[in-house]
Each structure stands twice: as C-alpha cells, then as structure tokens.
Nucleic acid binder design. Structure first.
Lengths: 238, 238
DNA sequence: CCTTCTGCTTGCGGCGGCGCAAAGAGCGGG
DNA sequence: CCCGCTCTTTGCGCCGCCGCAAGCAGAAGG
C-alpha cells in the first residue's frame, strides 16, 4: 500500500486551518507525498495542472518565464505553504515553473480530489480565498514597488521580505536560510545580477550585509529598512 | 422602505454565477445601491472595509498610493465586476482607493452580510476564488512585464488590455470607452505621463492610434499587438 | 590534485527614459 | 465669450541602470 503521510503534518497549514481530525484524515488520505531533491522541477509553466501541492519541508522557487525567455521569480514557498493551486482555481494551466531550491518534501493532491475536498469542506475554500487574497495583495505591492521605486530600494524590500519568510538568527545577524543567488534577487526585483552585485557590495562595505556565493546574511536589518523606507540616511555619528 | 434593486442586475455577474433564483433574491436583499457621480471616491486606502461592492454601470479606477505619494493604477472595474472585496477576504483594510471615472452605479454588501452569504452559499466563495485567482494571474503578468519589458511594449500591453475590457467599435477603429488620461496610462505601466505622451505621439504619426484629451482610439490593433509581442516590425510594403 | 563549471565582482561606455520647463489646447464655468 | 484649469505636447540635459567583457573565486568532480 502507498505510504500515507502522517496527518500531523497538516497541522499548522493555513489551507486546512479549522478542520476537525476526521476532515484532516480525509484530506491526508488523498495526498501523495513526493521527495524532491534540490534543483528538481516539480511542474512547468504551461502544463495542465494534474495536482495541487503543499510543501512540508524545504524550499521551492516559483518562476514565471516570459515569451522571450526573461524570468521573474514570483515567490519562494516555505514549509506549510501551498503552491501550484492557482491553476486549479482558474484555467487549469500552471502559470509558472516550480523548482526545489533545497531538498524538499511536498504533498500533492490530484486536481479532482482537491475540488471534491473543497466542496465537502467549504472551510478549505474560505482558507484558500484568504491565502490567494494575501498573495494578490503582496503581488500588488511588488507591482507598485517595481513601478515607482528605484533599484536599491526594491532590493532592500526583497531582502526584508525574505528575512521575514526565511530568516534564521545567526551570530552575525539574520541569514536567509536557503541558497539565493544574485540572479535570483535580480529576478525578484526586475533588475540584473550585475546591479544586484554592485548594490550588495556597496552594502557590504557599509557593514549592512555579509554575502557570498548563494548566501546572504543581514547584519543591520534596521539599516535595510531605512533604505527601503527612504528614511533619513541615518548618520553614523551623534 | 429602501429601494431594493432588481435581481436581474445580478445576472451575468461572475461572483453570483450558478445561484438559483431564491439565492439571488436573498443576495439582492442585502445589497444597497449607490449612485456615484464621476470623480467621486467610493472608498479610500487604509479604511476598514465596511462593505464589498459590485459595479452595475459606469467605470471605477482602483489606485494604490505608495508611502511617498506615488500612485499606481491596479485596475479599472467595469459593469458586472466586483471590487473592494479583497479587504473582506484578508485583513479588513482597503488596499487601495476606488474612484468613479464615469458616472456609476454600484451595489454594496456590508462586510458581515458578505461573509454570511458566502457561508450559506459556498458557490459564491468558489466564484470569488476563481475571480481572485484570475486577478492574481493578471497582476503577476503585469509584474513580469514591468520587470522585464521596456516602456513602449508595456504601454502597448496596457492598451490591449483596455481594449479587451472596455473597447467599443467606432468608425475609426476601437475606442476605450471611458476617460483615460496620459497620467492614468503612466500609472498603469510604471512610467511618466511625458513618456506616454511621446509614445502615443509616435504611434499617432504612424497611424496606429488616434488620441486626444482623456481619449484613445486604436486604429490598428494588430500593430499594437506586434509591438507588444515584439514581432518583426511589420513592413508596410509587400 | 588539477580541471571545469558555476557564480560573483568590477570597470567602462552607452542610452532609455526621467525630470524640468515652457508653451499649446480643449473644456467648463461664470 | 472670455478666463482659468486641467490635460497634453515637446525640447533638452542628465543620470541611473543596463549590457558587455574580462577576471576571479570557490565548489564539484574526475
């Protein structure tokens, strides 16, 4: 028999919040677990969505590709978050690629099962509505940023979001806890890896961040916020 | 007694698709109609959302304002579309301003009523999920565009969307059927009114558009598509 | 251990588009 | 009908950022 996952993993997932134990058991019965090694694609843009997914562990990058091959990072998925579900609610085609950036473990629900579950448990639909609503608001904010702010502030905003989502306390400050390249940051902020590199170098020389190969540590989060909010440049003296 | 609107106006609203006559009557019973003259704000960014809205007639502009006053047009709402509902699904605060750009008629449902209706009629929640999902996809596409494309293509894309949403056949071509300023287009595409003006002037001299004060007519939609998709420049001869 | 590959840095030149400024052009109100 | 307001046009100069190119460094793999 196929290994059915432990219902406990659904605890704490916003998508299934408010369901009783029976319902959770039913949900988990339809789920299929999948181990995904770092670098492996989970689904691709344009495919018909065979399933919706939720991440148990690891980190997944959602990337949209334009007609000329330009890539934009839509978001990073962390443990407890769903992904690839937009297709289910809309036209059935994945609007982006999903690729594991760390070794990951995901659960998948076949599209049909997902639909049935939402009909039998309207709370799931309501939860989904909240989640999709939150994401819409976030993307709207990013749209405003990329439309009106200059590159340095956009990069600051992106890092702040990453810290909130994936920050881990470490001696030197707060570290983004998954491999993140300059290119990734560039694709999150609508710029080039060159400009990101220059910006991080400048911040590094000011002691705001420490960064290396696919790795970023924020030493002075408040300074980053100051840049993002364009506060008075924060004189070091007095 | 308060004038209850005709249930027939809900026909064709995606949000209430699939509801039977009884349910529609119940929905309409909770609605409050509101006439909104051109230029009037309907709600403001940051307010707690007292109600969700749907537009019966007219046109409403949804504008988000950044911390430094920079404005971004999130979308234009046409008849049959809901707006100001995101707040209800998320944190209860309107994330943007809504202002009528034409004389308009809207229906409003108090937040509490909206919630109750969704609980009693899960189909509404499912419809909302589809609608919000579609908007999320659209905003994601715009985010990709503004992140990767140059201004001219972005403006072309914006006009194409407007034509799809609010295009009216007219002798000279297709007209955007509500007042649309250069400033509006700039705020839709993350540029300045100057650049929009220059671009439209260039297109005008090529016979692609005809535009004047708060008014745009597309004479050669295919040429606009060619610009948006960056097809071979479409030699006029042969 | 050496090779290769991938990711990062940095200089330099060019240019797309912004910001400013000033002038025209419809529109509406008195 | 004229005045004032808002929207638009267009020139000009500058600059933030991109694009290219070359070199470096650390990881991976034989």
């Amino acid at each position: 028999m196929p290994p059915s996952p432990d219902p406990a993993v659904l605890r704490g997932m916003p998508l299934f919040a408010g369901l009783d134990a029976d319902a959770l058991a039913e949900v988990v019965r339809h789920a299929r677990p999948r181990r995904v090694p770092k670098g492996t694609p989970i689904f691709s843009q344009g495919e018909t969505a065979a399933a919706g997914h939720a991440l148990i562990d690891g980190r997944v990058k959602i990337v949209q590709t334009g007609p000329d091959g330009q890539q934009v990072v839509m978001r990073f998925i962390g443990p407890g978050e769903m992904f690839g579900t937009l297709a289910i609610f809309t036209d059935g085609l994945y609007p982006a690629d999903a690729v594991a950036v760390s070794d990951s473990l995901a659960l998948s629900w076949p599209t049909a099962a997902m639909t049935v579950l939402m009909e039998r448990h309207p709370a799931i639909a309501m939860n989904a509505l909240t989640i999709v609503g939150d994401r819409l608001r976030e993307v709207q904010n990013r749209l405003r940023e990329v439309s009106t702010e200059r590159v340095e502030r956009r990069i600051a905003h992106a890092l702040i979001r990453l810290v909130r989502q994936a920050g881990r306390r470490v001696e030197a400050g707060v570290e983004i806890d998954f491999p993140l390249s300059r290119q990734d940051v560039a694709e999150m902020t609508g710029t080039t890896l060159h400009t990101v590199s220059r910006t991080l170098s400048a911040w590094e020389s000011q002691g705001i961040v420490e960064s290396g190969r696919q790795q970023v540590v924020i030493r002075k989060p408040h300074a980053l916020v100051a840049i993002a909010e364009d506060l008075p440049p924060l004189r070091p003296d007095r």
